[in-house]
């Protein structure tokens, strides 16, 4: 398997005052098709690492290669292009647009790569079908349960067929039974060949990964491989 992500000596210091080193000398390689869990308590630099990996933030040190491209050499427009086509985000808070249908919430993921609207719609319906929500395509988020909302969010993340699915506490707002089903869905997606990086503080979620990395005070340490 080739490396999808390659982080070498990544550090991020927020300019102060006082300056704050959120990440220091992080090394991480994620192979295509792998499921890596980044485990850490709150305030450990988890979210900062997610933002760097998701190209929402730039590291101040080190080298980050995404699919073999050094992201430091990319302008904001091309970084946005990678986010639109190659990275799918799943958030703890779902971040669905409240006044738009489930279908609209999925198809918006294809808008910024310039996919024509007919194809967006077709893909959106396929994706909703894939997460088992074909019958809820025209429901508003307020009419959906928490689990259904996260399914819509996963359908949105998968719609552009991204190289990387980046999950940030995907089950943080869900009860354990619903969380189980969401984790099953993520596992199912990974089994189909999708590379997944999940960031969590929840050991139950971490147990689903094929590989776990712990982050503490902005430093990454490879922990013992989780049970597969």
């Amino acid at each position: 398997m080739t490396a999808l992500l390659d982080l070498r000596g990544i550090g991020l210091t927020y300019p102060g005052p006082p300056p704050y080193r959120a990440l220091r000398e992080c090394d991480l390689t994620v192979a295509a098709g792998d499921h890596v869990v980044i485990l850490g308590p709150s305030g450990s630099g988890k979210s900062t690492l997610l933002n760097v990996v998701g190209l929402l933030d730039r590291p101040t040190e080190g080298r980050y290669e995404f699919e073999g491209v050094d992201t430091a050499g990319l302008g904001n427009a091309r970084r946005a292009g990678l986010r639109a086509r190659r990275i799918g985000f799943v958030f703890q808070a779902f971040h669905l647009m409240p006044h738009r249908s489930a279908l609209d919430n999925v198809t918006v993921a294809l808008m910024y790569s310039g996919v024509p609207s007919a194809r967006r719609r077709r893909t959106g319906l396929e994706m909703l079908d894939r997460v088992g929500l074909a019958h809820r395509a025209y429901a508003l988020p307020s009419q959906l349960s928490g689990g259904e909302r996260q399914r819509v969010a996963i359908a949105r993340a998968l719609a552009p067929q991204p190289a990387l699915l980046l999950c940030d506490e995907p089950t943080g707002n869900l009860d354990s039974a619903t969380a189980e089903r969401i984790l099953d869905l993520i596992e199912e997606v990974r089994a189909a060949g999708q590379t997944v990086v999940t960031i969590t503080h929840d050991p139950v979620v971490a147990a689903r990964g094929r590989r776990a990395v712990t982050i503490r005070d902005g430093r990454l340490t490879e922990s013992t491989p989780a049970a597969t």
Binding site: V69, R85, Y112, S113, G114, S117
Partner: peptide, 23 residues
């Protein structure tokens, strides 16, 4: 893949108008 091959994101005029009306 080289940096130059990475396409920037875009927003079609039709989609922009659509989003405006949807809003």
């Amino acid at each position: 893949m080289s940096a130059a091959e990475v396409a920037p994101s875009r927003l079609r005029i039709r989609d922009l108008a659509g989003e405006g009306v949807a809003g």
